[in-house]
């Protein structure tokens, strides 16, 4: 494998891990609000979380570029205030992957919230636990299997993300080139097939590995949660 291919593999893993970890707290918050609360704007939040699922990824990438580009309202603010630049950087790939994976993560975690027996939480509060403690000591442990499921889905989605990534951060080898964009680039040049195949195999191995690991982890969590 060439250093360029390795860079694509490691960048993909790096981007996906960050995208998953960074979207997890927001995913939990959104899933909680959508499954437990009814408020003005509920429909809007629901639609917004699902938007990346239904929009063409290129459109999502372009919208990200408009908002988070160096001249965009949010991108400009981030650069001026914190010195953070997203467009055409690997950090931007993280944002693109996180946004694209967000609906899948939220859906999985929502199912977890909806499966929790509310009486168990109510009992915890009658036993003296303030709402935050009920959430930390009862709700969160009980939804842990769906947190894992949601994270694996998000990780897999992030690993495969192409359209929004290439639109928002382009395909710069060693900087923003992820496995999917590298495979695409290799397929555009004569004789690139062998290298593309190596990356295809690696992405299959990583995907299957993540799936198996999540299955093992989810079972262990399920056993801890339900004591089976």
């Amino acid at each position: 494998m060439t250093p360029e291919e390795w860079a694509a593999v490691s960048l993909s893993v790096q981007v996906s891990v960050w995208a998953t970890l960074l979207s997890l707290p927001f995913g939990i918050a959104a899933a909680w609000a959508l499954s437990r609360k009814r408020f003005p704007g509920w429909q809007a939040l629901n639609a917004l979380t699902h938007l990346p699922l239904v929009l063409p990824p290129v459109v999502t990438g372009y919208l990200l570029l408009l908002a988070f580009g160096r001249n965009g309202p949010i991108g400009g603010f981030l650069e001026d205030t914190f010195g953070i630049v997203l467009a055409f950087r690997w950090t931007g790939a993280v944002l693109a992957a996180a946004v694209m994976a967000f609906p899948l993560m939220v859906r999985a975690i929502r199912l977890g919230f909806e499966a929790v027996d509310r009486r168990v939480e109510e009992t915890a509060s009658t036993l003296g636990a303030p709402p935050v403690m009920v959430f930390l000591t009862v709700t969160l442990p009980l939804i842990s299997p769906s947190l894992i499921a949601g994270s694996v889905l998000a990780f897999a989605k992030a690993m495969g993300e192409f359209g929004a990534t290439i639109t928002f951060v382009a395909n710069i080898p060693g900087q923003t080139q992820t496995m999917p964009t590298a495979i695409y680039a290799l397929l555009q040049v004569p004789g690139g097939d062998a290298a593309a195949f190596r990356l295809v195999w690696i992405s299959i191995v990583i995907a299957v590995g993540a799936l198996v690991a999540s299955e093992v982890l989810a079972r262990r969590m399920q056993a801890r949660v339900q004591g089976s």
Partner: peptide, 20 residues
């Protein structure tokens, strides 16, 4: 008074034990 400050011990029909 919020439920967690009432000091009322509850036992519900299904016991509602913490499964974890």
């Amino acid at each position: 008074v919020a439920p967690h400050l009432r000091r009322i011990g509850c036992v519900f029909q299904n016991a509602a034990l913490f499964p974890h």
